[in-house]
C-alpha cells in the first residue's frame, strides 16, 4: 500500500515526507529505512519534514528511533526543514528529539552529512591499512 518513497543519492538516503502520516505508514518507513541502509550501505539518512504541519509524539518517536537504528547501522541521520510552529509545539510538548541532528534545509543537511562522513574517513585512513573506503553496494 502507500509507503513513503526512499531515494538514494550517492551514499545518502533521502526521505521527503509529503503526506499527513498515518501511524502504520510511519512504522513502515522506519522498517524500510533500516532495510535500505543495510542493502545500500548508505552512510547518511536525510529526512525532509518541511511539508509536515505537525509532529506529535508518535512521529517524534519515529524520528528518534530512525536516528538510533541508523546509528547502529553506522549511518548518520539528519532531520531537515522543520517549521518554526512545529518546533515551538514540540518544545512545549516536552520533546527535544534527543540524538537527532537537525539542519535548516536539504542543502545544509547534505553538507552536514558530507562533513561528518569526511571526518570518519579521515579517522580511518592511516596509510598502512591501505584503501578502506571502497563501498561496493550489493547487486540490486
Amino acid at each position: 500500500m502507500d509507503r513513503v518513497p526512499i531515494l538514494k543519492i550517492g551514499d545518502i538516503l533521502l526521505v521527503s515526507i509529503q503526506v499527513d502520516l498515518q501511524d502504520h505508514i510511519a512504522l513502515a518507513l522506519q522498517e524500510d529505512l533500516g532495510d535500505k541502509i543495510v542493502a545500500t550501505s548508505a552512510r547518511g539518512v536525510l529526512i525532509d519534514i518541511s511539508a509536515l504541519e505537525i509532529v506529535d509524539s508518535f512521529i517524534g518517536r519515529m524520528l528518534s528511533t530512525i536516528a538510533s537504528i541508523s546509528r547502529v547501522l553506522d549511518a548518520e541521520t539528519v532531520v531537515v526543514g522543520m517549521r518554526p510552529a512545529v518546533a515551538i509545539t514540540l518544545v512545549e510538548l516536552g520533546l527535544s528529539l534527543g540524538g537527532v541532528r537537525t539542519a535548516l534545509d536539504v542543502d545544509r543537511g547534505m553538507a552536514m552529512l558530507a562533513a561528518s562522513t569526511e571526518v570518519r574517513d579521515d579517522e580511518l585512513e592511516p596509510d598502512e591499512h591501505g584503501a578502506i573506503d571502497t563501498v561496493s553496494a550489493p547487486g540490486d
Binding site: 501511524d23 504541519e53 506529535d56 517549521r83 518554526p84 515551538i88 509545539t89
Partner: peptide
Amino acid sequence: SLVDQTKLVTAASELAR
C-alpha cells in the same frame, strides 16, 4: 494563530491516538 493552530492540532492528534 499559526502556532496555536499547530499546538491544537498536535494535542488533538495525541488525544485521538
